[in-house]
Amino acid sequence: MIDRRSLIRSGSAAGFGALALAAVNSGTELAYGSTTDGPTSGFGSGQPGYPANLSPQERRQLRIFDELDFEVFTGQKWDRLGESHARNIRVHHPDGHFTDGIDKHIEDLAWFFLWAPDTRILEHPLRVATNQLTAVTSVMKGTFTKPMPNGKGGFIKPTGKAYEILMATVGIWNRHNTMDEEYLFWDNQSFNAQIGLD
């Protein structure tokens, strides 16, 4: 049996690919195609449905994650982040660093809106769920129209360029249906190039 946590912790594309293959090989269906049990209008309408073989817990976790991106993140409703994230969540970022705690995670998420106020996630092209593990791909979009804090007390001048990146989030859920760990994957080189920072 594949140790999913060690694959995710490696942070590599190969590890993530192996995770997806393991999910498929274990009988977990990829969540795309039409079903009548997918998200409805209000948020995520037009999204692929959920696979028929999910347990009630797996279905609940995917629904929570849909609402997290479509409503909470896109709407900057940071007071609701605790609906999907444990207070002491550890978040692993694409550059290899990690943060601990929901307050730091909110600060990191809000950073996108400082320089790209139109940041949004409205699509989940692919969803996988098995037991306490979910993997969801998202399309994040925005436009670099405001000064970007550079982390050194200064700012990077806006370029006016739009970005659209495919990202993946792997979540490890606890018995309270919140994530204890979250792994974020996207191509930083493509992201920086799109907003004019290459």
Rank of each mutant, 00 (worst) to 15 (best):
Asn53Pro: 04
Thr99Asp: 09
Ile121Ser: 07
Ala31Ile: 04
Ser138Gly: 14
Val72Ala: 02
Gln57Pro: 06
Leu122Thr: 09
Arg127Ile: 03
Val91Leu: 04
Tyr163Cys: 04
Thr159Ser: 14
Pro147Leu: 13
Phe43Tyr: 04
His92Thr: 06
Phe70Ser: 00
Tyr163Phe: 15
His85Pro: 01
Ala129Val: 07
Gly154His: 08
Tyr50Pro: 07
Ser55Glu: 06
Arg60Pro: 09
Pro125Tyr: 03
Leu133Met: 09
Ser55His: 02
Pro147Phe: 08
Pro56Ile: 11
Gln47Ser: 06
Ile165His: 13
Val72Asn: 01
Pro147Gln: 13
Ser41Asp: 00
Ile102Phe: 01
Ala52Arg: 11
Gly38Ala: 03
Ala162Glu: 15
Ala86Tyr: 01
Phe98Val: 10
Thr36His: 14
Leu109Trp: 11
Thr36Val: 13
Thr35Pro: 07
Gly96Thr: 03
Gly27Ile: 00
Phe112Trp: 14
Ala162Met: 11
Leu62Phe: 07
Pro48Met: 02
Gly33Ala: 10
Gln57Val: 14
Asn88Gln: 12
Glu71Met: 00
Lys157Gly: 12
Thr134Arg: 04
Ala162Gly: 13
Gly96Asn: 08
Val128Met: 15
Gly33Trp: 06
Ala162Arg: 12
Asp69Asn: 08
Asp69Val: 02
Asp118Thr: 11
Glu71Cys: 00
Ala31Asp: 13
His97Phe: 15
Thr159Phe: 06
Asn53Ser: 13
Trp111Phe: 12
Lys146Ile: 13
Leu126Asp: 14
Asp103Cys: 07
Glu164His: 07
Gly154Trp: 05
Gly96Asp: 08
Asn25Pro: 02
Asp79Glu: 15
Gly49Cys: 09
Ile102Asp: 01
Ala135Cys: 13
Asp37Cys: 12
Thr119Ile: 08
Gly82Lys: 05
Glu67Met: 09
Ala129Asp: 03
Glu123Asn: 06
Glu29Leu: 12
Leu122Lys: 07
Thr35Ala: 07
Phe112Val: 10
Thr137Ser: 15
Asp37Arg: 14
Phe113Glu: 10
Phe65Met: 14
Phe155Thr: 15
Ala18Gln: 15
Val136Arg: 06
Lys146Tyr: 13
Val24Tyr: 12
Thr36Tyr: 13
Arg87Gly: 01
Ile106Pro: 00
Ile156Lys: 11
Asp95Tyr: 09
Asp79Phe: 02
Arg59Tyr: 09
Pro147His: 09
Ala22Gln: 11
Gly27Glu: 00
Leu19Gln: 10
Thr35Ile: 02
His124Val: 08
Pro48Glu: 05
Thr134Ala: 05
Asp118Ala: 10
Gly42Trp: 00
Gly49Ser: 03
Ala110Lys: 15
Arg63Leu: 11
Thr36Asn: 10
Gly42Met: 00
Asp69Trp: 07
Asn53Trp: 02
Ile89Arg: 00
Leu68Gly: 03
Ala135Lys: 05
Val139Leu: 12
Leu19Ile: 15
Ser34His: 14
Ile102Ser: 01
Phe155Ser: 14
Ala20Cys: 14
Asn150Met: 08
Ala129Lys: 04
